[in-house]
Computed example of a mutant assay.
Amino acid sequence: MGILIQAFAVVVMAIGILLAPKIAKGRYSIVAIGEFGIAIVVAATFAVLGTHAFNSGIDGTPSPLQNMWALGHIGLLGLLALAWLWWRKLRTASVACLSLTGSTLMGYFLSMYLIAPIVTSGGSHDTARWTDSVVAASTAAAAVAIIMAARALLWPRQRKLRALHRL
């Protein structure tokens, strides 16, 4: 269920970034439409993965969506493209996209075969312990980054001009 919420969050993040006045200023509409299209594709890949997990959990057997594993690559490429496109506009949103790559299929493999065995000092023949914790940490890092992005958009820093006082 969490990955379905994550799919919704990717769309909301894209809408928030595209509608921000400071970011949207001076930008071509075709680029904004392309960015939103990429965000929809990424959200769709997360939605397919979440629907597969949800249906498999309810039925007790793997769903027919298990053969859609190639969508994981599309989600990864889409997140990397969004991170590249948003780097100059809002860096914390770009960091959020890079953190979300841990939730893709390739991010899961990386956490299962590289990061989790290092953290737990060993692996097993099929999966490493705490693999889901590594994926959850990347999702939490994305959440923190997008909260910082929202803070930067809603409450921008303003330089305070102090009057010089003479004694």
Rank of each mutant, 00 (worst) to 15 (best):
residue 29 S to I: 12
residue 117 P to I: 04
residue 109 F to I: 09
residue 118 I to A: 13
residue 131 T to H: 09
residue 23 I to F: 04
residue 50 G to R: 03
residue 122 G to F: 06
residue 12 V to L: 14
residue 55 N to V: 14
residue 23 I to M: 08
residue 74 I to F: 05
residue 140 A to Q: 04
residue 65 L to H: 03
residue 11 V to M: 12
residue 48 V to T: 12
residue 80 L to T: 06
residue 94 S to G: 15
residue 14 A to L: 09
residue 68 M to P: 00
residue 23 I to E: 10
residue 137 A to I: 14
residue 40 I to K: 02
residue 99 S to F: 15
residue 42 V to H: 00
residue 10 V to W: 01
residue 61 T to F: 00
residue 10 V to A: 03
residue 166 R to H: 08
residue 137 A to T: 13
residue 28 Y to G: 10
residue 49 L to T: 14
residue 114 L to H: 05
residue 142 A to C: 12
residue 145 A to S: 14
residue 107 G to V: 02
residue 75 G to Y: 05
residue 138 S to Y: 08
residue 8 F to Y: 07
residue 31 V to F: 00
residue 95 V to W: 11
residue 141 A to P: 02
residue 11 V to A: 07
residue 5 I to H: 02
residue 156 P to G: 05
residue 27 R to N: 10
residue 25 K to E: 10
residue 68 M to N: 00
residue 1 M to A: 15
residue 33 I to E: 05
residue 35 E to R: 09
residue 25 K to G: 05
residue 116 A to C: 05
residue 120 T to L: 08
residue 53 A to T: 10
residue 163 A to D: 13
residue 85 L to F: 13
residue 114 L to C: 07
residue 127 T to L: 07
residue 157 R to Y: 06
residue 164 L to F: 13
residue 116 A to L: 02
residue 119 V to D: 06
residue 124 S to V: 01
residue 163 A to V: 11
residue 134 V to L: 14
residue 102 G to L: 15
residue 6 Q to Y: 05
residue 143 A to G: 10
residue 49 L to F: 14
residue 3 I to Q: 09
residue 51 T to P: 02
residue 62 P to F: 02
residue 84 W to H: 06
residue 86 W to K: 09
residue 33 I to A: 13
residue 49 L to P: 00
residue 155 W to A: 13
residue 157 R to I: 03
residue 67 N to H: 14
residue 18 L to H: 06
residue 29 S to R: 07
residue 70 A to C: 12
residue 42 V to F: 01
residue 94 S to L: 03
residue 43 A to I: 02
residue 22 K to W: 03
residue 10 V to I: 15
residue 131 T to G: 10
residue 83 A to K: 09
residue 38 I to R: 01
residue 81 A to C: 08
residue 102 G to H: 15
residue 146 I to L: 03
residue 27 R to L: 12
residue 125 H to M: 15
residue 124 S to I: 04
residue 131 T to Y: 08
residue 11 V to N: 01
residue 133 S to H: 00
residue 16 G to L: 02
residue 79 L to K: 05
residue 95 V to E: 05
residue 140 A to C: 07
residue 132 D to Q: 11
residue 71 L to M: 01
residue 116 A to M: 09
residue 20 A to P: 01
residue 155 W to L: 13
residue 154 L to V: 04
residue 139 T to D: 10
residue 83 A to I: 04
residue 133 S to Q: 09
residue 97 C to E: 03
residue 35 E to L: 15
residue 165 H to A: 12
residue 111 S to M: 11
residue 28 Y to R: 13
residue 138 S to Q: 07
residue 136 A to F: 01
residue 54 F to G: 07
residue 19 L to I: 10
residue 148 M to V: 13
residue 19 L to Y: 07
residue 17 I to A: 12
residue 95 V to G: 03
residue 66 Q to S: 05
residue 98 L to D: 02
residue 123 G to I: 09
residue 135 V to S: 04
residue 50 G to N: 10
residue 44 A to Q: 03
residue 11 V to W: 01
residue 6 Q to R: 12
residue 113 Y to D: 06
residue 54 F to K: 11
residue 43 A to G: 09
residue 95 V to T: 08
residue 148 M to R: 09
residue 151 R to S: 11
residue 49 L to A: 14
residue 82 L to E: 00
residue 84 W to G: 03
residue 15 I to C: 03
residue 87 W to Y: 04
residue 105 L to S: 07
residue 154 L to N: 02
residue 79 L to E: 01
residue 55 N to R: 11
residue 64 P to Q: 03
residue 1 M to I: 09
residue 78 G to L: 00
residue 127 T to C: 03
residue 121 S to M: 08
